[in-house]
């Protein structure tokens, strides 16, 4: 009897240790980005394609110059509490001016900050996971050319237990994967489109429905979502509901006008602002990829 209790306790200890081991923050090896040289000009395109400014610009930002000041402060409501986007300007104290490109890669792809702690998935690293490290090097080079700002970041307002960062490891284990959603025989443009939609553009973060724990239901990819306030619906981009032509999609991403001459609205305004900076061939790649997305279940 005594023995069973002891071995159960031992098992529990091993289990807990195993849990902590499996859910520990997992940054890259320190030499992962050795030899990569960043190109700021290319990084500007990565910056637009991945929409960093849409979340990290100041509230009330009205123009493109202001959108380059990544002082944070925008508010994101969720079932778990309210998140505030932090300052990621190159200010060494309040922003990320003292970070290396590898630190940025750890945050963006692995959801781990410089203190080695898990970041919240309100920062869409579950999507950014497959960003190439060369793109991170370029992005980093570009971000360091942006204006520094000394506004301190606003702390999140989260309830217990969501305020405990170590719990996020389990979330990552369940919902973060290296696998593509749309797989199979894709041509070059469709593959580029997949990288833009599934990874950099993090389109699924809005357009895919979520489960109760806030993970994207990858089996219902781009089948339409709803924001946590329940007010804003994100339209489906699956072929059963969404029937725009490739030309119409690429045109919308360049100009903001829909096939029935309406203007883009809501948060999609920022996505179009960003994608209007990309090349025609990238916008066409997004459209080509969307044609390959399967119908919703």
């Amino acid at each position: 009897m005594q023995k069973t209790i002891v071995s159960l306790a031992a098992l529990a200890a091993v289990g807990a240790a195993g849990f902590f081991y499996l859910t520990r923050p997992q940054p890259f090896d320190t030499d992962a980005m050795n030899g990569l040289v960043g190109d700021a000009e290319k990084g500007e395109l990565v910056f637009h394609a991945s929409g960093c400014a849409s979340c990290h610009m100041a509230p009330g930002t009205e123009d493109e110059e202001m959108a380059k000041i990544l002082k944070g402060g925008l508010k994101f409501a969720s079932e778990f509490g309210t998140f505030y986007a932090p300052n990621i300007s190159p200010d060494p104290e309040q922003g990320i001016g003292s970070w290396s490109a590898l630190d940025l890669a750890n945050a963006m792809l692995r959801g781990v900050d410089t203190a080695g702690e898990h970041l919240y998935p309100a920062f869409p690293y579950a999507s950014y996971r497959n960003t190439t490290l060369q793109d991170v090097a370029d992005l980093y080079a570009y971000m360091m050319t942006l204006p520094a700002d000394q506004t301190p970041s606003v702390p999140h307002e989260l309830s217990f237990p969501f305020n405990l960062r170590f719990t996020l490891g389990a979330w990552k284990l369940m919902f973060v994967t290296d696998k593509w959603v749309v797989d199979g025989d894709l041509n070059e443009s469709e593959q580029r489109g997949r990288y833009l939609v599934e990874v950099l553009g993090h389109c699924g973060e809005c357009h895919t429905p979520r489960n109760v724990l806030g993970g994207m239901k990858r089996g219902d990819w781009l089948a339409g979502g709803i924001d946590p306030t329940g007010l804003v619906e994100f339209p489906a981009l699956t072929p059963d509901k969404f029937t725009w032509s490739e030309t119409d999609i690429a045109y919308y991403l360049r100009s903001g006008f829909t096939p029935d001459y309406d203007s883009v609205g809501g948060e999609m305004v920022h996505v179009v602002d960003n994608y209007s900076h990309l090349t025609n061939s990238d916008r066409e790649a997004v459209a080509a990829y969307l044609m390959r997305v399967p119908a919703a279940n």
Partner: peptide, 20 residues
């Protein structure tokens, strides 16, 4: 000019929702 005009539409359209 058309793209510029769209930016003016969007100054307000960020405060709208897709409505069915």
């Amino acid at each position: 000019a058309v793209v510029k005009l769209n930016k003016s539409c969007n100054a307000c359209h960020v405060y709208t929702i897709e409505n069915t």
